[in-house]
Design a protein around this nucleic acid. Sequence first.
DNA 1: TTTATTTCCTACTAATTCAGTCAAGTTTAA
DNA 2: TTAAACTTGACTGAATTAGTAGGAAATAAA
Lengths: 161, 161
Amino acid sequence: MRLTTKGRYAVTAMLDLAIHAEDGPVSLNDISGRQGISLSYLEQLFARLRRCGLVSSVRGPGGGYQLSRATPEINVAEIVDAVNESMDATRCNKQGNCQEGFECLTHHLWLDLSDQIHEFLEKISLEQLISRNEIQQTARRQDGNNDNRIEAFLSEAAVNG
Amino acid sequence: MRLTTKGRYAVTAMLDLAIHAEDGPVSLNDISGRQGISLSYLEQLFARLRRCGLVSSVRGPGGGYQLSRATPEINVAEIVDAVNESMDATRCNKQGNCQEGFECLTHHLWLDLSDQIHEFLEKISLEQLISRNEIQQTARRQDGNNDNRIEAFLSEAAVNG
DNA sequence: TTTATTTCCTACTAATTCAGTCAAGTTTAA
DNA sequence: TTAAACTTGACTGAATTAGTAGGAAATAAA
């Protein structure tokens, strides 16, 4: 079992996508800028997310990615599953042949833990995440930085005619 | 966050220790034979378990390892913590500086998940594990193999005088 | 006192995965 | 037609895993 940057980045990016869904397709370049994730790495992650049917892509200028389903219909577990192998805690992939064809002494413990983790992550939808206070604050901070850049660009444009 | 063979072996070995506690100190060689874990690897794991005060050692012939506390007083979480870094799911070790000094968009999600996992594993003591049916069965199977070997040895000894 | 058994300690290694880069493509709106 | 944007595959340095190897120290038993 593992949860690494890969799975964490995927959820973060999907959440960014959900937050900025109103503006049409979101480019990986924008996500990269806001979330501090390298563009090339995002490309790899979204290839998997697309293959699992979680997002759809729009190519060409003005294109980007969109969620395939509404935010209440996407939960964190499936995002992590899409990019990470899984959150399975057993060694035997739940086969029960962990020690010479038989169950190891702790097989059922890890089975229970796997269920526990999966249930927890399954219960959390993107919509629920968006509605959380801390996340809205963080999102505003990230967008604020972006707005500042836009403002700076616009005022400069005004000066230059 | 990760749960690998290291953490799983540690819990398995501690459980083996708990099950055979009545026979006095348990040697790593015995555990290695019963649980199919390499002796050298066990030595590394028990060095950490000893440093964390979970087991005490008796050197010399007939020696081995003993639990430092009674089985209800040892839970799975502390065993995993002793050998694995931790089951912390955040990237920032709960510091909240995951993205350029600020919290990343999903910081609180991973914080909650970490708590969830830790609480779950904390609630499970070695005593609870021992009392589980599947574990008793597995233990009997493992000891059975061992008993067969002892029987074979004894009957051979009888033949040889 | 010797010997066998056991823990203790350090160093090494092959394989895997992570996290990310690089370089070439293809699509398609403007 | 052109450039923005996605797509794909190969590659890489660093870290971690899952061990192995070899010996030193302690100690109970012969």
